[in-house]
C-alpha cells in the first residue's frame, strides 16, 4: 500500500507522544486537541453515555471501540453537536463546544462522517465535493445572483476538489450522480468531502462498515494519510483487527463509559477489555494461516461474482 511507505515521521512522533502514558481510563495526554469532561446522555431511564474524562492527542489516530450498543455513535453525536448532552463539557483546541450547533462545530475544524454514508445522491460527485468548501462567497443569497463575485473562488474550489478526487481514485466519476456510486466509493467520497472543509480533527463513524475487503486496505491507507498531513483522527470501529493496524491509541467504551485506554498492542490483552468487550467466549486473534484462508475465500467469492456478471 502506498500509505505504508510514507508512514514515517508522523507515526513515530505520534507513538513517541504516547510513550510512558498509563493505560488508565481518562489519562492525561501531552498535547490534547479534544478534552471531554463528564459527558452524560440519557434517553429516559437509559444512560447511553456517561464518560468521565477523556483526552484525544493531537496528530494521532485514536480509535474508539466497543461492542454494539456501547454508546460510541451517541457519544460522537454529542461531541459534534448533532445531539445535545444532558450534562458535561468538552473543548476543542481549548474552545468549549457544549451547546454549539453542528454547523459551527464543523466550521471550527472538527468534521465528522456518518456510519450510514450520507452521499448526496442527486448531486454529482463534483458538486458533493464543492459543497464541503468553507466561506464560499456564492453561498450568500445576494452574492449568488452575481456570478462574477464567486466564479474565481469556485474555480479554486474545483481545482482542490479535483486533486482530492484524484487521490481518492474518484476522478473518473466526477460527473456521475453520487447516488450511482457503490457503498465503498460513497465512503471514499464522504471522506474526501470532509477533507474539503479543511479539518483539524476528522471524526470517522465506522469508516469500514459495509466496505469490501479490497477497498478496506485503500481506506486504511487514506486514514493514515490524514495523520501524515498533520490532522488528528478519531474513529469508531468495532473490528479490532482493523484497529490494531492503524491506530496509535485505543479508547474502549462499554455500556456508555470508557473502561480502558491504551496502545493497540496491549489493549487487546487488557483484562477489563476482554471481560467487557469480548466476553467470555471471545475468539482468539487470527493466525497468519487463518487470515490467508479468509483472504482466499474472499477472493474466490469476488471472482465468482465477476464471472456471474460477465
Amino acid at each position: 500500500m502506498h500509505a505504508d511507505t510514507t508512514v514515517t515521521s508522523k507515526k513515530a512522533a505520534a507513538l513517541a507522544a504516547f510513550e510512558g502514558i498509563d493505560s488508565e481510563p481518562g489519562v492525561p495526554k501531552p498535547d490534547p486537541i479534544l478534552v471531554i469532561e463528564k459527558v452524560v446522555r440519557r434517553f429516559g431511564g437509559l444512560t447511553a453515555v456517561d464518560v468521565d474524562h477523556v483526552e484525544v492527542q493531537r496528530g494521532s489516530i485514536t480509535a474508539l471501540i466497543g461492542p454494539n450498543g456501547a454508546g460510541k455513535t451517541t457519544f460522537f453525536n454529542q461531541l459534534t453537536g448533532f445531539d445535545t448532552a444532558d450534562e458535561g463539557s468538552w473543548s476543542f483546541n481549548g474552545k468549549p463546544l457544549r451547546g454549539v450547533p453542528a454547523h459551527r462545530v464543523a466550521r471550527s475544524g472538527m468534521v465528522r462522517t456518518f456510519q450510514l454514508t450520507k452521499a448526496l445522491s442527486k448531486l454529482t460527485v463534483m458538486e458533493n465535493m464543492r459543497l464541503g468548501a468553507q466561506n464560499q462567497r456564492g453561498e450568500n443569497f445576494f452574492r449568488a445572483l452575481i456570478p462574477g463575485s464567486w466564479r474565481g473562488q469556485e474555480d479554486e474550489i474545483t481545482e482542490r476538489a479535483e486533486e482530492l478526487l484524484e487521490r481518492f481514485k474518484l476522478a473518473a466519476k466526477r460527473d456521475d450522480f453520487a447516488g450511482s456510486l457503490s457503498g465503498g466509493q460513497r465512503k471514499l467520497l464522504e471522506m474526501a468531502r470532509a477533507l474539503m472543509v479543511g479539518p483539524e480533527l476528522v471524526m470517522l463513524d465506522e469508516p469500514m462498515a459495509g466496505v469490501n475487503p479490497a477497498l478496506t486496505q485503500s481506506l486504511l491507507g487514506h486514514v493514515k494519510d490524514l495523520r501524515e498531513e498533520g490532522m488528528t483522527v478519531l474513529f469508531v470501529e468495532h473490528d479490532m483487527d482493523m484497529v490494531r493496524d492503524i491506530s496509535d491509541w485505543v479508547i474502549v467504551m462499554a455500556q456508555g463509559t470508557v473502561i480502558a485506554e491504551g496502545p493497540p498492542d496491549t489493549i487487546m490483552s487488557d483484562n477489563r477489555v476482554i471481560d467487557a468487550y469480548l466476553g467470555a467466549h471471545h475468539d482468539a486473534p487470527m493466525s497468519v494461516e487463518e487470515a490467508e484462508e479468509q483472504l482466499q475465500e474472499a477472493e474466490a467469492e469476488l471472482e465468482a461474482e465477476i464471472e456471474e456478471k460477465a
Binding site: T80, F82, V111, F114, A119, V197
Partner: peptide, 8 residues
C-alpha cells in the same frame, strides 16, 4: 445532516 456536518 450531511450538510450540517459540512458547516452550513
Amino acid at each position: 445532516d450531511a450538510v450540517r456536518s459540512l458547516g452550513k
